[in-house]
Design a protein around this nucleic acid. Structure first.
Length: 524
RNA sequence: CCCGGGGUGGAGCAGUGGUAGCUCGCCAGGCUCAUAACCUGGAGGUCGCAGGUUCAAAUCCUGCCCCCGGAACCA
């Protein structure tokens, strides 16, 4: 991959018109696993998230509520952050594009591009709704049946002066760049899409709006504000100091990976590199366009796009409060392939939770702890300095750990988790069944002790491998025993290095009548 | 019309040339340490359709059908 020292990753910034839904959260979780994994791997990580606030819609929404736009944005940002916190998203920074650092960086950037001659004045013609006092896309109008979706009146054609960014000039350079950097656009399917798009020719893009109060003023012509993408994309650099702290900016740029939804791939893969070149900066190292989450209609069985009009919006907190942030993370990481699309249904959620988290992982943890605590008073003698035995020979744990690493690096989180379950946890349950330590303890207590030591080793491996995915439960499992490595310092290598116990293995988990509290209580 | 993705046992997926695999669900046993959890076995698929290449195709080629998404303020 990239140089091991620093790793800068971002997610798309969200519109604060409405609260985040499970699809928005899907992206953050996928990025979070990557961030946590990189930290474990010894990288100095900077993980950025944020909200995209300089839009007409935001100003309008605030006006509807009779609130000051900035105050409204701050309140929404607070709500977003609450959700991300509940999901244990480990972002290092959260940028709001209404912040001064973003405004300053944006103005510096656009001025530079202007001075370099990549911006020219022209006129924009589009479909305009007088009720909204805004231009509408053809798609919006078409979907509403030829009228404005908000005001139900047909739009009028309107032309206004504006500034264009000369994107078309960068077509050849982009194609050359894709060719020289085959890993730039991920996954592969997205790459093909962008390739054909750019080969088909690029149009210059309108980057300003006239007569808006809310937003960033164009420094070389203050009657205009910067329009959407030319503002939003810049958050990735203004957040790390572009235009305000050059040293910091140089430290982190270029980004190692931008996580975005597949729908905005074109902006990140075509427009964004061109903008950066125009300002004399490097493009990001890679862009990952993840899939979408659809909601299963329980009546028809059909997968529906999440939308307010369909009334099928599921908010993360709906799930988190009923289950947990960990369960939420597990479901989407295991059930929805990150590069492709996935589906959510409450029934499926329950099934996955019960079979994989409660019955498999949680139950293995419970049975191991009980066996050790009840039969050995929580203390396995003579395990200090002793290597655990191998319980599964088809695939050794080193291979498994490396397969998991490979999958994480390719953002194939569902496959990484499947490996852990099939190659670490299932074999442990089978091994317990085969060796029957609950019986063996009555005839050969020493042999049973070794069996239990081997079983607990599987929990140790699973906890380490699961650290980026289920940070809390992985820690709970790990701290249930006196494993030698401090939790904060464990790395994937520790899975196969088997650092020896300095002292005999002991159960540290709090017990009641010799039993632990279930990690994932079954849902009925 | 164009572009992209996809069609594999009831559901969800893996599988890019060599006896069709996994999870859930279902059926039957076993076990009883554990969260009525765990383990074993079983039923269930002509891998969208039709041709072709090959000793051999879910996998490569051609044509067709169907589903989903996209075309520039939408994660």
């Amino acid at each position: 991959m990239t140089e091991p020292s620093r790793f800068y990753l971002t997610t798309a910034i969200d519109y604060p018109n409405s609260r985040p839904h499970i699809g928005t959260a899907f992206e953050k979780i996928g990025a979070d696993v990557q961030a946590r994994y990189r930290r474990m791997s010894g990288n100095t990580v900077h993980f950025l998230m944020g909200n995209d606030e300089n839009t007409i819609k935001v100003a309008k929404r605030a006006a509807e509520l009779g609130r000051d736009p900035k105050e409204y944005c701050d309140d929404m940002a607070r709500q977003f952050k609450e959700v991300w916190k509940a999901l244990d998203i480990s972002n290092d920074d959260f940028i709001q594009t209404s912040e001064a650092r973003h405004h300053a960086g944006c103005r510096a950037f656009i001025q530079k591009v202007y001075d370099a001659g990549h911006i020219y004045k022209g006129a924009y013609e589009g479909l305009y709704c007088e009720g909204c006092e805004a231009f509408k896309t053809e798609k919006e109008i078409k979907e509403a049946g030829g009228v404005c979706p908000d005001h139900k009146v047909p739009p009028i054609k309107r032309s206004e002066p504006c500034y264009f960014f000369a994107l078309s000039k960068f077509q050849d350079r982009l194609l050359r760049f894709y060719d020289e950097n085959p890993g730039f656009i991920q996954p592969e399917s997205r790459r093909n899409e962008i390739l054909s798009l750019v080969q088909g020719g690029l149009q210059d893009v309108n980057i300003t709006r006239q007569g808006q109060d809310w937003g960033i003023k164009v420094p070389f012509d203050e009657q205009f504000t910067i329009y959407v993408w030319f503002d939003a994309l810049l958050n990735y650099i203004t957040a790390i100091g572009y235009g305000t702290d050059d040293e910091r900016f140089r430290k982190w740029w270029p980004a190692d990976i931008h996580f975005i939804g597949k729908d905005i791939t074109r902006f990140h893969c075509a427009l964004w590199p061109a903008m950066l070149w125009a300002a004399g900066e490097e493009p990001p190292r890679s862009v990952f366009g993840h899939g979408f989450v659809y909601v299963k209609n329980e009546e028809t069985g059909a997968a529906e796009k999440i939308s307010k009009s369909l009334g099928n919006v599921v908010e993360p907190m709906d799930i988190v409060t009923k289950f947990s942030g960990e369960a939420f993370r597990y479901y989407f990481l295991r059930e929805c392939p990150f590069p492709g699309d996935g589906e959510f249904s409450w029934q499926r959620f329950k099934d996955v939770f019960n079979s994989e988290l409660a019955n498999n992982l949680g139950n293995l943890y419970s049975r191991c702890i009980t066996l050790v605590s009840k039969n050995y008073d929580g203390h396995l003698d003579e395990t200090a300095g002793r290597k655990p035995g191998v319980i599964y020979t088809e695939v050794d744990t080193q291979t498994t750990a490396q397969q998991v690493q490979k999958h994480i690096e390719a953002c194939q989180y569902n496959q990484a988790l499947e490996r852990i379950w099939r190659q670490i946890l299932d074999p442990a349950n089978r091994y317990a069944e085969k060796t029957e330590p609950w019986k063996l303890v009555k005839t050969d207590k020493e042999a049973a002790r070794h069996v239990l030591y081997d079983l607990v080793e599987q929990l140790r491996c699973a906890a380490i491998l699961l650290k980026p995915f289920l940070p809390r439960m992985a820690e709970t499992i790990y701290r249930g025993f006196n494993f030698p490595q401090p939790w904060a310092e464990v790395r994937y290598e520790d899975v196969w290095v088997h650092p020896l116990q300095a002292e005999d293995l002991r159960v540290l988990a709090p017990l009641e009548a010799g039993k632990v509290k279930p990690l994932f209580p079954r849902i009925n």
